[in-house]
Amino acid sequence: MSELTLDVQGLSTHFLTRGGVVKAVEDISFSVPRGRVLGLVGESGSGKSVTGFSVIGLVDPPGQIVRGKILFQGRDLTKLDERELRDLRGNRIAMIFQDPMMTLNPVLRIDTQMIETVLAHEKVPREAARQRARDALGMVGIPSPDERLVSYPHQFSGGMRQRVAIAIALLHRPDLIIADEPTTALDVTIQAQILAEVQKLAREVGTALIWITHDLSVIAGLADDIAVMYAGRIVESGSVSEVLDRPMHPYTHGLIGSVPSRNARGTRLRQIPGMTPSMLNLGPGCAFRARCARADAACAADPQQSTPVAGRTLRCFHPQLEVTA
């Protein structure tokens, strides 16, 4: 078996809407080795969630995976049928959703929603499943889990609901967890606690993790690798220390420049000028060029993925090699 838990090659996911084609994810490749954490960053609408949903095979219609391979422990998920995918979902691959207020079913008790997840993949007695659910709630720091199990979602705060969702994801100690901005709704101490918990799991069980976020500081503290998305493409990737210390893509520079903690004290935060382009019927050429200070005529063509340094990828004609002031 390969060391790579997940190896995505040339994945494209498009939405065939009435207004035209939305290339939400276009020709992206990345991999996550066993026990490592990949941080997936990018601004709103860049295709991070769609990437996550593509991996677990839950892209909503009219979206569909049009090209590429998703190798999970060597099996191509795009070739599996729904039944085989279902056996993996929630079992070997778990996902934590972005909005904790919406992910739990409002009219089912927490225990129902947890136990069904256990029973979907393992033939164990109900009591044992319940015990597992209890333990998982305890693990994510929910006090008096026995009481909480018989509650309904509306009796929980947003942060508590997200912890329940995380607990559900941990039930089967999956090989891969896709966490879609899971800690945004949590306060800082809980966030730290959950991050630590997840890191521990990654180390001990060897779970591979995709952590989707806007927040570079979370990535800096948690992830091993980073992939920066822009308008459906991965524009730059590599190990966290490499990319954050020596970014090459102008967009990555911009992102780092807009994070407070990494700026020298007293200097102004710099926003990236302009707006994310509409992804509907996006033409050829580098999607960032309208906002890029280095853009020139060459950028009207699609920049191909290159490997400037071993272990890093880049999509840009004019990489910015100097460190941002």
Binding site: R86, D87, M102
Partner: peptide, 12 residues
């Protein structure tokens, strides 16, 4: 989302 999450849990 709750439907999608339910599906993501792998239930039938």
């Amino acid at each position: 989302d709750y439907v999608k999450f339910a599906r993501a849990k792998g239930i039938s």
